[in-house]
Design a protein around this nucleic acid. Sequence first.
DNA 1: GGCTAGAACTTACTCCCAGTAAGTTACGTC
DNA 2: GACGTAACTTACTGGGAGTAAGTTCTAGCC
Lengths: 207, 207
Amino acid sequence: MTSTTAAPKRRRDRAAREREILEAAERIFGERGYQGTSMDDVAAQVGVSKPLIYQYYGSKDGLFLACLARLRGQLLDTVADAVMAAASAEDALYAGFLAWFRFLDEHPQAWSVLVDEGMLSAGPAAEATDEVRAAFIELIATMVRMNVPADRAADDDEIQIVAQSISGATERLAIWRTRSANPPPPEKVARTLQDLLWQGLHTFKTS
Amino acid sequence: MTSTTAAPKRRRDRAAREREILEAAERIFGERGYQGTSMDDVAAQVGVSKPLIYQYYGSKDGLFLACLARLRGQLLDTVADAVMAAASAEDALYAGFLAWFRFLDEHPQAWSVLVDEGMLSAGPAAEATDEVRAAFIELIATMVRMNVPADRAADDDEIQIVAQSISGATERLAIWRTRSANPPPPEKVARTLQDLLWQGLHTFKTS
DNA sequence: GGCTAGAACTTACTCCCAGTAAGTTACGTC
DNA sequence: GACGTAACTTACTGGGAGTAAGTTCTAGCC
């Protein structure tokens, strides 16, 4: 009786199924958060049984991390491109922020997943998460080094402090914007943030 | 057979029991995180049955929030005191940061609980969490207004952006420091952060 | 076409933990 | 001593993560 209309849900090869599962998971995690999503939900959405997902992704954390890694990769690429394309160091700062906030505006469900990473502060998943974040910090640190005048040899601690600060600031701003009724546009946020930081980076103390 | 040594675990009045439960919960949440802690664990630690905790705190989130609120209150008071005691606006910024990082050094398990708040991004607990955070943002916003020159009427969006940025930066720095093998001392972090932000706040763009 | 190997997939569980209903015991008060 | 109530417990339900063991489709060979 599955003859007439509905696609009979044939078997598919592993790669295709994995992709299908990943897309469903991204959507559902994005809508309901990590806690609010059960593996049965995802399985039902894909039209597949739960153990299959376990076979492919190992655990709920594994599935979530797969979503996370993909989205974070996209975001990182977007921001890195914008930074690299900028003409000056000052412009790179603004362009990076702008790309960040625009991406999150355009992929709201992606951001929900990314924010939920706090969920994984315990467990083996935390390491993988930190790796991806470290890539961001590194990008920011590179920008910071571009901004700090050459005659001033900032020590590594200071670079780290600044990079961590910027990472934290952009993350919280992103969260704030999604929760805000009518948040200021990406351009304004990027501009304000750049104004706040540029002077400090530029005229970094020479003690 | 409970006669000789062990205290027979008499009944206690509600207030005392609540305090006892809260202290145990803070410790265990701090050690194992939200996910890693079960209500049975807490109950066993206190030497009491699980339903009693439910009677007093309503839910696991409720218990966690009670820990959170208390710790956050302490932290907020500490920072606010330092800010208010400062002689100048510039000094207030540094003093506030310093108080923040010092408190977290001195109460490491407290910070584990505070960081885990990300855990509560879903559910009714999120609102209560946001309220406490809002108090911080408000404190920072006040400081920001102190720092922005009077002739420059910064609009509310800009104040918010700056306050959110600072809040995010300090939170991420705190997380980074706890995970770092040998993090720079509070004084250095506070100093660097102040250097980064002071110029930007001070010479805020006049467009 | 028929046969077979292995990949894709499912049924039917277990265990753990948040949360609860209903009952029991200690303690202050008259 | 008896009564009322607050402190507390036993013994459960429900739901979701994770799994053992089995079943069906399909590609590739003869």
